[in-house]
Amino acid sequence: MSNAHETIDNAVKSNDVMLFMKGTPNFPQCGFSGQVVQILDYLGVEYGSMNVLEDAEIRNGIKEYSNWPTIPQLYVKGEFVGGCDIVREMFQAGELQEHLTSAGIPTRDTAA
């Protein structure tokens, strides 16, 4: 098992919500990563993040880890949820909120 795989596996397992992204939550370096950050911030979810641009091994490793070709990638309780399009569609349908809540992750009450 490569170090990148171990690093990814550890991050996924040690954070209830984990986002692999380009850039950081305060400074996303791609629009898709930025959209996922906005959704998570809107829901008030605490999450870990890893900037794949800082490490080519992580950037390539995460694609193998999830068998998913694009970044960002969102994990909840160790389970791959999806990339930007899936997260956005789930959010718009209210499914992301339900998924997080059913996983025991508190979200801000957005039904105002």
Rank of each mutant, 00 (worst) to 15 (best):
L100M: 03
N15W: 08
A103I: 05
A112H: 13
S49R: 00
L100A: 07
F20Y: 12
L53C: 08
G61E: 09
G23S: 08
A56L: 14
T107H: 07
I62R: 06
A93L: 04
V45I: 04
A103G: 10
F91C: 03
N60S: 12
S2D: 10
V36W: 11
Y75C: 13
L43H: 12
E95G: 09
I8E: 06
V87L: 02
V12C: 06
D41W: 08
F80L: 12
T110D: 06
V52I: 13
F91V: 02
V36Y: 07
Y42F: 15
Q73A: 06
M90A: 06
A111R: 12
M18W: 01
S102K: 13
E54R: 10
E95P: 09
W68Q: 12
T7K: 14
G23E: 04
F27W: 08
T7Y: 02
I39C: 02
Q97W: 04
L43V: 12
P25R: 02
L43A: 00
V17R: 00
I71K: 03
A93R: 11
A93D: 00
A4G: 04
G23M: 02
T24R: 07
A93N: 10
Q97E: 14
R59P: 15
A111Y: 09
H99I: 03
C84A: 04
G83T: 06
G83M: 04
T24C: 03
N26P: 03
D55R: 08
L74I: 09
V12G: 11
Y42V: 03
P72E: 09
F20W: 07
K63F: 00
L40P: 15
A11M: 14
L100Q: 04
R59D: 12
R108T: 14
L40V: 14
D85M: 09
I71E: 13
D16V: 09
K22V: 10
Y75D: 04
G44D: 04
S33C: 09
T110K: 15
P106N: 13
S14E: 05
P106G: 08
G83K: 10
P72R: 01
F91A: 12
V81I: 15
I71N: 10
N60V: 01
G31E: 05
I62S: 14
M18T: 09
G48W: 11
E89F: 01
M21W: 05
C84G: 12
D109I: 10
G48V: 06
H5R: 14
A4K: 14
I39E: 00
L40Q: 06
A103K: 15
G83C: 10
L40T: 03
Y42N: 14
E46H: 01
G23Y: 05
E98L: 12
P72F: 03
T107I: 15
M50Y: 14
A56R: 09
E64Q: 14
C84V: 01
R88K: 13
E98R: 15
A56W: 01
D9M: 04
T70V: 06
N15T: 00
E54Q: 11
E6N: 13
D41H: 14
L74C: 15
P72K: 00
S102R: 13
K77H: 02
K13Q: 11
F91S: 10
G104Y: 02
S14F: 04
S49A: 12
E95C: 09
V81M: 07
G61F: 08
D109L: 07
M90K: 13
M18E: 05
L53D: 06
G44Y: 07
T24F: 04
R108P: 07
R108D: 10
V81Y: 10
K77Q: 03
F80S: 02
Q38S: 15
V17L: 07
D85P: 01
